[in-house]
Design a protein around this nucleic acid. Sequence first.
DNA 1: ACCAGAGCTTAGACTCTGTCTAAGTCAATC
DNA 2: GATTGACTTAGACAGAGTCTAAGCTCTGGT
Lengths: 139, 139
Amino acid sequence: MSDLLERLRGRGWRMTAQRRVVAEVLDGEHVHLTADEVHMRAVVKLPEISRATVYNTLGELVTLGEVLEVTTDRRAKRYDPNAHRPHHHLVCAGCGQIRDVHPSGDPLADLPDSERFGFKVSDVEVTYRGLCPTCATTA
Amino acid sequence: MSDLLERLRGRGWRMTAQRRVVAEVLDGEHVHLTADEVHMRAVVKLPEISRATVYNTLGELVTLGEVLEVTTDRRAKRYDPNAHRPHHHLVCAGCGQIRDVHPSGDPLADLPDSERFGFKVSDVEVTYRGLCPTCATTA
DNA sequence: ACCAGAGCTTAGACTCTGTCTAAGTCAATC
DNA sequence: GATTGACTTAGACAGAGTCTAAGCTCTGGT
C-alpha cells in the first residue's frame, strides 16, 4: 500500500490534497476503520475535507481494488487496506474489533456442485465471531 | 418451526395477535424476508400492526434463537426461519436472492489457534457470492 | 368474573449511514 | 497563464432501524 499514490496516479487519478490524505490515513494504521473514522482522522490533517469526499474516495479505492469493504454488522461499513492478501475476519461480539485471519482450507472447494443451484460462485467471505480476551473476562 | 408458538409460550411469552402473525409469516414461506417485507405480509393479516412491533418481535425471535439474522449487504437485514439446521448462504450479486447451502467441512476447525488471538471463537458465518443462472445469462 | 399492573403495541420522532445535488474550486493540459 | 472538466463542498435527502411516551391488553390473583 506504500506506493498506492503512484499506482493511483498511473490510473489517471487527479491527485488532490483530499485524496492524498485519505490514502495516508488508510496507509497509516493497519486497522479496520469506518468511513466516519477515516473522516475524523483526515480532518486532523486537512480540516476542510468533507464527509462526501471521504465517501467518494473510499468508494473509488474499493472499485480500484486497493481497499476492501467489510460488513460485519448493520452499523458502518469498514475499510480494510489489506486488499492484496486474501484473508477473512474475526469479529469481537463485545467491542466490535476486527482482526484479519488466515484459515487453512478453502471454503470455496467445500461447496459441492449440488449445493450451487447453477450459480456461478466467485467469492466467499468468512466471518468468525467470538469474544476478544478483554471482553471475555469482563462479560 | 411448526410448534413455534408452543415453544414461545413455554418461554413465558405473552401471546398476542401481533406476535402470532409475525410467527405465521416466517413460518409460511421459507424465504429470507426483510423486516419490512415481514411487516407488509403481517399487515395483510392484521392491518393495525406497527413497524416497531415487527422489529421488536423479530429481535426477540433472534434472541431466543428461533430465527437467524442474515446480513448480506448494506441494505436491510434478512430473517431466516431455518435456525435449527446449521447452514450458510449463497447470495446472487445481481438480484440479491439468497439460498441456504450446506458446505462440507467445518470452517471453525480450519482456524488454527495461532490465528485466534486469544478470542473465544463461537461462530462462523460463510457467505458465498456469485450470479444466479438468470443473472449470469443476462449480464 | 373482575382487577391490577406488567408487558406489549402504537405513532411518530429521532439517529445513524450513506447518497445526491448544485454550485464553486482546482489540477492538469495546452 | 488560461481553460476546462474533474473534484470538492455543504447541506438536503433517503433508508433502515431504534427510541419514547402514551395507551392497550393479556394473564394471574382475588
